[in-house]
Structure formats: C-alpha cells, structure tokens
Design a protein around this nucleic acid. Structure first.
Lengths: 345, 345
DNA sequence: CCGGTTCATGGAATCGATTACATCGGCGTG
DNA sequence: CACGCCGATGTAATCGATTCCATGAACCGG
C-alpha cells in the first residue's frame, strides 16, 4: 500500500508538503498542490489512519458498548449513535456485551487499548473496576439508557415514571388488580428503576406488589419465559404481567402460548420498550416507547462535547405509553401509520 | 497514559525487555520478568494497540459491512461473526450500510483506512469500484449472504432453492395458484436469486409468474408495504405474497392491516428469513430459515484462513422451510420449543 | 584454562504520519 | 537600496510500540 513517502516521491516534493496538502494547510503553492493531488490520484493513496492516530493522539472514533445486539432497542440505539457520530466526523465501534459483565469488560478493554476518543456505555452491571478506573482516569465517557450511580459521568436516558403511571392507570381502569412484573437484573438501573416506578404507581391505587409478583429476569427472552411460568404456577396467578423489556415480553408470550392460554383473556401483557413487531403480534402489545433515536443522538452530542472540551450535559427524555390490545381493551382508534419513518441523513 | 518507556524506567530495564516480557519472548530472566510485570501492574499499563499495529502492520481486526442493522437477520449474523472472531483472537468493526451504496462505500473506505486485516461484506449493490479495487489489490475479503459475481472472492451463503421449492409445493397443496413475490433490489444477488428460485419452482407446477406479480422492493419495510398495496389494487390480486426478506414481510403485514384485510384469508404471506417474532405474529408467519449463526462463523473462518495464509473456501449451506399458519393451514404439530437456544461461547 | 555457544539485555532503526523549526527567495517600504 | 517580513518548502523529531544486531556474561567441553 502506498505511503506518504511514495506520494512525495511521485510528486517531487517532501512528505511535509504532501501532508500539508492533505490537511489543507494554507501555505502550499497551487503548483505543489496540483502535483500532490495528481500523485495521490495516480497511486490511489489513502492516508494510514493508524499512523495518523499515533501521531495526533486522536482516533476520531467513539466506542459504544451495548448490552445486547439482539435486542431491537439497542440496535436502534446503535443506529442513531452511528448516524449522529458520522455527522460529527466520528466513527463508532460497537461492542456487544450480551448482558455479560465479563464480555462488557472485554470490550471496554479492547476499546481503551485502541485509544478511542470516547466511550458510550449502557452498563450491564454495577460497574467493573475497569470502567470505574477509566472514568476516573478521565476517559471521556457518557452513559446511555442505563447508568452507574455515584460516578461522575453524564447520563442520557429516558424517564419512564410517567409512562408507567399511565400504564398502571390503564390497567386499573380495565379492572386489573393483580399486577406482576418481570424485572431486569437488580444491578442495572433500568432493572431496579422500572420496578420502583411500577411499585409507586401501584401504591397510588392502593395496590400492593407482593414479592411473589416480582419475577427476577435478566433482560433475555428465556428468563421472561421462566418467570412467566412461575407466575402461572402460583396459587393465585397475576392478571397482568409487565415485562421490563421487549425480549422478556417475547419469552412471556412463549410461555403463555406453550400452555395454550390466551392474551389478554388469561393473562394480560405489557412491555417496556416498543418495537415495530408489537403492532402485529397476537394480540398487539401495549408498550412503553422510548425516544430511542433522540437518546442516541443526544448521547453522542454529550460525548463529543466532552471530547472537544465543552461541558457535557446529562439528558432525560420522557417515555410514553402506547396502548394496544394486550391488556384487554380495543384502543379507541387504530394506530395511524404503523410504518415508522426512518430518517436517512 | 503510561507508555512502554514509563514501564521500562519503573522496572529499571530497557523498552526492549519490556516488550519481550509482554510478548513472552523466551529469553528474559525471571528477575526481569517479575520486575516488569510489577511495573506494569503499578502503572496500570496497557499496550497502545495503535502503535503496535503501526509497527507490526496488523490490527487483528476484521471489518464487517452489513446491509441493515435494523434487520434481525443481519444482527444475528453480526453477533455470530463477532463471537467466532473473538474466539480466534480478532475484533470486529461493524459498518451499517442501511442498504445504501454510498454508505457502504463510506464504511469500506474507513475500514480500509484503519488497515483492518480483512473484510466481510454483504454487498448492497453490484459492487463499487472501491470494493472491486480492494479485492483486486489483495485485501483479504469474503462475501457473506450476498455476493458480487465475477469477483474472485470466497462466498459464504445459504442456498434457498430447495426451501423455496418446498414453499411452493406447500402453497400449491393449499390450493393457491396466483402467487406474487416482493423482490429485493436486482443489484443484489439475494434480490434476483430468490425471484429466480421462485419462478423455477412455480414452473414445475406450470404456474406462470407474470410481471405484475413481481414487485420491486428494496429489503426495507416501507417498500414491502408499497408493493403489497400495488398487488391489492390489481384487477386480479394474488392469493399469496412471498416477501424476499422479513422487513418487507412486516411492511406487507402493515398494508394488509391498513385495509382491514386478513392473513391468510384475504392474502397469504410467506417470508424469506425467519425471526423469532414470526411465531407470535397474527397469524404466525411461514418462513424460510437460514442457518444464520453457522453462516457467520463459517465466513469468519474463511476470512481468517485467507488472512493467515491458508486457502479459504466458499461455503453454501441449505436453508429450510418453516411452515406456520400465514398461508392457510394449521401445521400438523405445534412447534416444539419456540425459545431458540442462544449459544454463550 | 580457553574458544565457542547460549542467554539476557540494551541501543537504535523502523512503521507512516504530523509539525516545529530552519532556510531561502521575493517583495514592499522607508 | 537595504532591511525585514512573509510565504513556500524541506529536514528532522516525535508518537509507542517491535525487532535486528551487538555486547557481555556465563557456561560447557576438550
């Protein structure tokens, strides 16, 4: 592969001049510029990003560590992150933690070794020493969706409290009184927060949330299925199950189906995180929708602010309830247009 | 951030010795080794991958350019690719082309600039000069799922011919005679191949495939919707629509629903690419399942073979038909266990 | 006891860029 | 006309690793 030296030789100038042309430094003669450009063209030269990064100590790359690529929520997040980063002149390297702290650490480590300019994380757990050290050592970092308490890192997330309240109101209006939740891992903020929001909303209606109605999941489908089966085996099974993410809702659906039961007649179902398929499931699933794209973009902006020396800000956006039929009632009007628009920056 | 020099100073040895310890070169005294390791520990030193790559001319990184991250098929592919690569000691950088040739080029270019060791591509189009040049210039490269004819690059893909034949047999047995297809872009192999396989299978039953029954999609949901509406507006609409990927099937579902029609009574539906949600849609969707994980792993192995100087081989794996209810018949026995196992290497 | 291995180690070149500093010619101004 | 400044260019240092080569010590066998 041709290097800057080859270009310099071909153009009959020094490497310094070539570099100046490439980084359009002002003092280069028009003549030199044309010759260099011609040589670049002739040799098909492309600057070596590795060498450049070593010298300039910046990679113009952001690392994104997400909890699970198979979860459509994170996939959409990743897409918007990459889009905004690209607009700002950065690349993104994605690491998939698969909800496993050890894998998360693996990716954080390799990303750090590559000297990425900043890190976007949706932590799988309470925070490994590695990540904490990196944050303390001053690696530009922003948490998105989930975060780790007690660390001085900006957080970009959605607040589901109001939407959960709306959901509980909806369920209560439908006559449901025995409400259960499939929680995420307690080590994640979204794991515990959603349970808390649910409990508080129930309290407003004087409805208790017994231990037996709090199932411990891990944000993966299989756990949703297992927990739901446990619920169904209870002497007094719940009337409604609220899954803390869409994958566990899928697992719940699997469990219900395996028993030959029906949603919502035998068990109502709602989920945190809305995805397109929820419109077409049997029945369509009531869900709490996050402004995912906005979150991704805001997170990138915050991180780039931090990297480029500006003051980054935490951002909290509201989530909203999308009522469908999985809890028992036909919504008043059909959804306007189920095909979401995809921006194509 | 501490560099190898700092470690050398701390340990009272030269950088050469530090490097030897780190790459466990045989001739280092036990004493020097302990002192270096202690210094590494004390300083929290991590080798700079950028510098190492510059010197060794290898990044131990693979590039993966996929057509669309929002498509669960590619997401699963990406996951298995990363998994296998990690097992072989490589990292993966994913580029999402969003089915846009310009974006695909953008990612290929940045990956090449980063001097990745090899490239895995599922081309969005017939092949840009950039990609063709890279292949000719000797960049280790493997096509996965889709490929570009006439280029000497190994291909790892699934052959859907037999499964499409099974599908047509199934549809024919159900009495359907007017069969339409929503094709992918003709520039992609999967776009044209699936139509060809469908046409050939139909021919075996003496069923024609009129132009009007070939809708031109682009593998995105919106196109599936548009094409399906066109089909429904035909004087003689088809009885079955076969979508060449899962996203266009989603769009088709949207279109059917918007008209207040029902699947399969008013229009039967089948899709290429099976996804977990198809079990729970209304109705469950008949689909052709690819061995996605196996494809990803085989692709990585082929690419790494090429990188490490061994002879890479093209691989073709069979796809299989999964019958559900969307074409009209209740399958004989329910699916055994809808929760797929996820390997957790 | 001596010549030749072998082993441990350090010095320095190198990868491909960027950039500080030096140099040189030309031009404007007093 | 001379001085100083500015614009264009080149030389060389530098980033953080790896690795070739030289050096010196220790050790072995004859």
């Amino acid at each position: 592969m041709a290097s800057i030296k080859d270009v310099a030789a071909e153009a009959g100038v020094s490497v310094a001049t070539v570099s100046r042309v490439l980084n359009d430094h002002p003092s280069v003669s028009a003549d030199a510029r044309t010759r260099v450009l011609a040589a670049v063209e002739a040799l098909g030269y492309r600057p070596n990003a590795v060498a450049r990064s070593l010298r300039t100590d910046q990679t113009r790359t952001l690392g994104l560590v997400i909890s699970d690529v198979l979860n459509p929520y994170f996939t959409e997040l990743a897409r918007s992150v990459e889009e905004e980063a690209r607009a700002l002149g950065y690349s993104v390297i994605i690491g998939n933690a698969d909800e496993r702290p050890d894998l998360q650490d693996h990716h954080v480590r390799t990303l750090l070794d590559r000297r990425i300019d900043g890190l976007l994380v949706s932590p799988t757990d309470g925070g490994s020493p590695l990540m904490l050290d990196a944050a303390r050592a001053g690696t530009p970092m922003v948490f998105v969706d989930r975060w780790i308490p007690g660390v001085d890192v900006p957080v970009v997330r959605a607040d589901g409290r109001a939407a959960v309240r709306d959901l509980v109101a909806h369920l209560h209006a439908l006559g449901h009184r025995r409400l259960a939740i499939i929680a995420g891992p307690a080590a994640t903020t979204t794991g515990s927060e959603r349970v808390e929001a649910f409990r508080e909303a129930l309290a407003e209606y004087g409805i208790p949330l017994p231990e037996a109605y709090i199932g411990q999941g891990d944000f993966q489908a299989e756990s949703g299925r297992r927990v739901t089966e446990g619920f169904l085996d209870l002497p007094e099974p719940p009337e409604v199950v609220f899954a803390a993410d869409n994958l566990m809702a899928l697992g719940a659906l699997d469990a219900v189906r395996a028993r030959g039961l029906r949603v919502p007649e035998d068990l109502a179902l709602a989920a945190f995180d809305d995805i397109r398929w929820f419109v077409h499931t049997d029945p369509p699933i009531t869900a709490i929708a996050q402004p995912t794209g906005e979150l991704g973009r805001a997170a990138v902006r915050a991180l780039v602010d931090r990297i480029e020396g500006r003051e980054p800000r935490s951002v909290t956006l509201p989530a909203r309830l999308v009522v469908r039929r999985s809890c028992g009632e036909q919504p008043a009007s059909p959804e306007p247009d189920p095909v979401q628009n995809r921006s194509t920056s």
